[in-house]
């Protein structure tokens, strides 16, 4: 296997065009999926893709930013942001120090702590192939062939969701979540103006619960009454697991949705 250490972005597209070459960020994802199919790795560490910036109300995250870097920086640049809430609980300290944003988007595991928040935030992914293009992360997640031969250079999202809530459903602290739940809310004049509700871990990896977003719109932020909403919640399809049936996960999801909506609108955290 060959290693390439580009120092300029323009060197990367021709490399990734070659058969069997993959980008190397932190390496944690590559080591899990295995290296045997690969002919070479393009190490991204010389490209300085780890900047985290704020520009015109948008946050721009370089793809080599690790979870730890994102948590540390965003706590200052975007306090209240969903991303540190989600990523600070993900995996473990030594892994958060190594897992990169780009690698996580590219591999999108079913237990991802990153993708729920990114989808909910409406993030755009910056891709470099021959040219630079931008795509909504939700679109990329459904059209993963876009990533082939491309380099994820970073993402950006607008700082427009001051209210956020995150739950990862695990057995112990250091665990794959069985599902994650991201809720973002905008409240205007005492009413819920807009919301994003995303579940990771369903059969299609992620599900945005549009039905619920619609139902929430316009409700009083004081008493969004999640109980009646839950009756209208669609059953989500989870992959069958030995440890938890789809029925059980739906039941749990509803519990956490109710709690999330209650807490994000000002109720007590349980």
């Amino acid at each position: 296997m060959d290693w390439y250490f580009p120092t300029e972005l323009k060197e990367v597209p021709p490399l990734l065009k070659k058969e069997g070459l993959a980008p190397h960020g932190g390496g944690t994802g590559l080591l899990r999926t295995g290296l045997s199919r690969l002919k070479g790795l393009v190490d991204l560490s010389g490209l300085h893709l780890d900047a985290i910036e704020e520009n015109n109300g948008s946050i721009i995250l370089g793809s080599s930013s690790t979870y730890s870097m994102i948590c540390r920086t965003l706590m200052q640049k975007d306090p209240g942001s969903i991303l540190p809430k989600a990523l600070s609980m993900s995996a473990s300290t030594p892994l958060r120090n190594r897992i990169t944003l780009g690698g996580s988007i590219a591999s999108f595991p079913i237990w991802s702590d990153l993708m729920g928040p990114l989808i909910a935030l409406g993030s755009q992914v910056n891709l470099l192939k021959e040219t630079e293009t931008k795509h909504p992360v939700e679109y990329i997640s459904g059209n993963r062939e876009l990533l082939k031969g491309s380099l994820i250079t970073g993402i950006e999202y607008k700082k427009e969701w001051p209210l956020s809530w995150y739950h990862r459903h695990t057995r112990v602290a250091f665990d794959y979540p069985l599902f994650t739940l991201t809720i973002l809310l905008k409240i205007e004049a005492g009413r819920i103006a807009d919301s994003r509700i995303v579940v990771i871990g369903t059969r299609n990896r992620f599900t945005r619960i549009y039905e619920l977003e619609t139902l929430l719109a316009g409700r009083s932020a004081d008493s969004p009454d999640p109980v009646d909403l839950m009756e209208k919640m669609p059953e989500l399809e989870f992959p069958e697991r030995k440890t938890a049936s789809s029925g059980q996960l739906n039941c749990l999801l509803k519990v956490w949705l109710r709690r999330g909506i209650r807490e994000i609108t000002g109720g007590e955290r349980t």
Partner: peptide, 10 residues
């Protein structure tokens, strides 16, 4: 970091 999760070449 976990040294088992790092490729030495990097």
């Amino acid at each position: 970091v976990n040294s088992c999760q790092i490729l030495a070449a990097s």
